[in-house]
Amino acid sequence: MTTILRRTSEEPDSGKARPRSSSRRGPSWWVYLLLTLFVLASIFPFYWMFVVGSQDSSAINDVPPAMVPGPNFWDQTLEVFNRVDFGRALLNSMIVATSIAMGQVLFSALAGYAFAKLRFPLKNTLFVFVIATMMVPLQLGVIPQFILISELGWVNDLRALIVPGIVTAFGVFWMRQAFDQGVPDELIQAAKVDGASNIRTFWSIALPVVRAPSAVLGLFAFMFAWNDFFWPLIVLNKQDSFTVQVALRQIQNQAYVTDFGIQMTATVLATIPLLVIFVVFGKQIVGGIMEGALKG
């Protein structure tokens, strides 16, 4: 009964007309005020980055500080590209993040499918192991990881980021849930009855059903890889292998006098790709986080 009422009252128009009993009342004005404050706090530093990034370097000394974007964004951008090979860094980050996103979706889907739908000895033990590793901070193995990457000759090579990044325990867990909830056993049985092989059942029957959660996993993986900093800082020392985050650090570090204008311009440039993704897929990302919370 109540659920039906809630459903219908979610439409904004019907909400107003409805008589207001205590349990079905819209939020009061102070809730909106509170939320507005939180939104401003979330957005403002972001906006501030555009403001500083588009002023020339001396504007930062102004009292009171400038609060609207200036005209210099383009000049500053050219200056950023002058100081480091920022185009190359953007390209490198794009290569790394895309490869990791695709690899993670593929390998997580494979393992997740096996854990959700196939039967083999030690399956449950192995899955418990996967879950347990989610709790282990993998950064702690960074010294041997570096030794390993040097032995492979992958220092200053994007493979050093991509190969270790293409599998995560979280991805396997996520895709297992997706197959478990999204693909009924009957569907798989039916495919088998029709004579489809395991891999064919996986690829043409099961995988298309979990397109949406796969996409969310891919987005998470992309954003995570784009923002990764600790590991790239260790294995990338040459300009032409820098990712965006390492290039940003370089820009921050190379100036004798701290030049926040240039830093902020570079920060804006480094953030634009994520912003585009967020504007296009924000709703799915929010949904993914909230769904993930219920699974966990």
Binding site: S42, M49, T267, I277
Partner: peptide, 18 residues
């Protein structure tokens, strides 16, 4: 919901510099 998630998709370096 989307607005409060903006800080999360901002890169940690950007957050640091800002």
């Amino acid at each position: 919901r989307m607005s409060i998630l903006v800080p999360q998709v901002t890169s940690v370096l950007a957050v640091g510099i800002i």
